[in-house]
Nucleic acid binder design. Sequence first.
DNA 1: AAGACAGCCAACCGCACGAGC
DNA 2: TGCTCGTGCGGTTGGCTGTCT
Length: 322
Amino acid sequence: MGRSPCCDEAGVKKGPWTTEEDEKLVEYIQKHGHGSWRLLPMKAGLNRCGKSCRLRWTNYLRPDIKRGKFDDHEEQLIIHLHSILGNKWSSIATQLPGRTDNEIKNYWNTHLKKKLMRMGIDPITHRRRPDLELIASLPNHLGSTNSSNLASSWDQALQLQTDVAQFARMQILQVLLQVLTSPSSSFCSILGSPFASPPNFPASANLIQLECPARVSPPLSSATSAFGILPTDNNHRVRKESIEAMENFSRVLSSGDSRNGEADNCSTPPLVSSSPEHASANASFADNCLSSMNPSDAWDAMHLVDEDGTDLCWKDILECGF
DNA sequence: AAGACAGCCAACCGCACGAGC
DNA sequence: TGCTCGTGCGGTTGGCTGTCT
């Protein structure tokens, strides 16, 4: 697990690459392949660490790199994949031939994030954020101060309050989905513990009566297992398979599947994880199973029952819990 | 014309993970 | 089983460039 000492070596050059260095690196790799990155600088006669060489090659010198502006299709694809995968830049990059993860990451941070915020969409959750919309439209509101506008601002403020409450509910829904679609450890341990409840979940919501996994009804368990989320899987396998599943899924989307149109029409894919570490597993379930549902339908789809076989009042729990 | 500021992006840093011993 | 090594990845930084004042 130790860190590679390669970049700790003294006397190794850092900073921008010169054309001579680039030429040496390209020439060496074209002749011999990169082989071991650690040994490459020495063999190629470069006073750089292997890591730096690898980065320079993969992000800049590789012959298949596509240069220039991102087109609309690429932009939409990045936004969509980010809504599914979170900050998994390397996974996103696999869907955009010729683009590097670094390039996509930079483009996201400098362009797309701001673009979404201007549209009133939270770039992390990919959900509509009324507050952001309000901020974006603030200049318009400041420009007009007559009484009717004041009244409409009040309406808007009240609407905002309602939206924030709705948003909070959705956050809880997300947390629950994260828990439900996480590997067994988190689901069972959280629900099995007499004290634990999902983060930010209201204390009044009593989840302890649930157990794992017998009480998860077939629709949910089949939906999750279809994407590799099995209670017996370990974390890494689940993560990997989930990402692979999402990559396959997004491949279908990008190849013009009919659902793509629906997804594109809805600029904010629903029920997207707010935490990157859960994004892949969470999203595979959410995006495939719940994309066309409103929150109420989503609950119906989950169809959770307690041990007596009666429906749990999840909706009520959420609606009354805070 | 020049200094301040903001945006952009290549490169670096440090952590995580798998393989091999 | 635990350690080291090599590599991949995501977050962050620093310097270059363009725009504004």
